[in-house]
């Protein structure tokens, strides 16, 4: 029995949108239901590995309604079944529950999403930037941030030959 039918049976009555693209099931759930859905998927549908967490900024996408999306790729190690769960977020309220209590691998991946998109994770044990310096002000993978940055890369003192 596929994960899709299983989830609909276990958590009935919740609003969720299923899409299918190239044999891949994706489900969009409301941010409030995320923890419950993921727990059900892990405990009762044996989706035991969180393969990837990432974000998407839909700012320039034609016909997109929401600004941000957080994507969770799940995998059932035994059967090899994959499922992608995602949550849509909009500007003032960029917060979603942390999955670190369910999956260990979520720790760094969520920090990276925060680093790149500025989405915060409620209940994360170490909510700091992962890749960029702590003092970096912007969130570089947002679509309104230029590829070449705003000059942060050259904001350093120069050491000349004579003084070194």
């Amino acid at each position: 029995m596929s994960c899709k039918d299983n989830l609909d049976k276990l958590l009935p009555g919740k609003s969720r949108t299923w899409t299918k693209f190239k044999d891949q099931d994706r489900v969009i759930v409301p941010a409030a239901d995320l923890t419950e859905t993921m727990r059900t998927l892990r405990d009762q549908c044996s989706m035991d590995m969180l393969v990837d967490v990432t974000g998407v900024d839909w700012l320039d996408y034609e016909g997109a309604k929401d600004r941000f999306e957080v994507v969770y790729c799940l995998l059932n190690v035994e059967s090899g079944e994959r499922l992608v769960v995602s949550v849509m977020l909009n500007e003032p309220d960029l917060e979603v529950d942390s999955m670190t209590s369910l999956y260990k691998s979520a720790d760094w991946l969520e920090r990276e999403v925060y680093d790149m998109f500025g989405i915060t994770f409620k209940g994360h044990p170490n909510p700091k930037r992962l890749l960029l310096p702590e003092l970096f002000a912007a969130f570089p993978l947002r679509k309104d941030y230029p590829v070449q940055g705003r000059g942060e890369r050259h904001n350093f003192p120069v050491i000349t030959r004579a003084e070194s």
Partner: peptide
């Protein structure tokens, strides 16, 4: 659409999750 595809790289599962517009 959005798509996740992975291969077995020497280090492990190297996947690309990408969105096409």
């Amino acid at each position: 659409g959005s798509l996740y595809a992975a291969t077995e790289s020497p280090n492990g599962e190297l996947g690309y999750d990408f969105v096409s517009d």
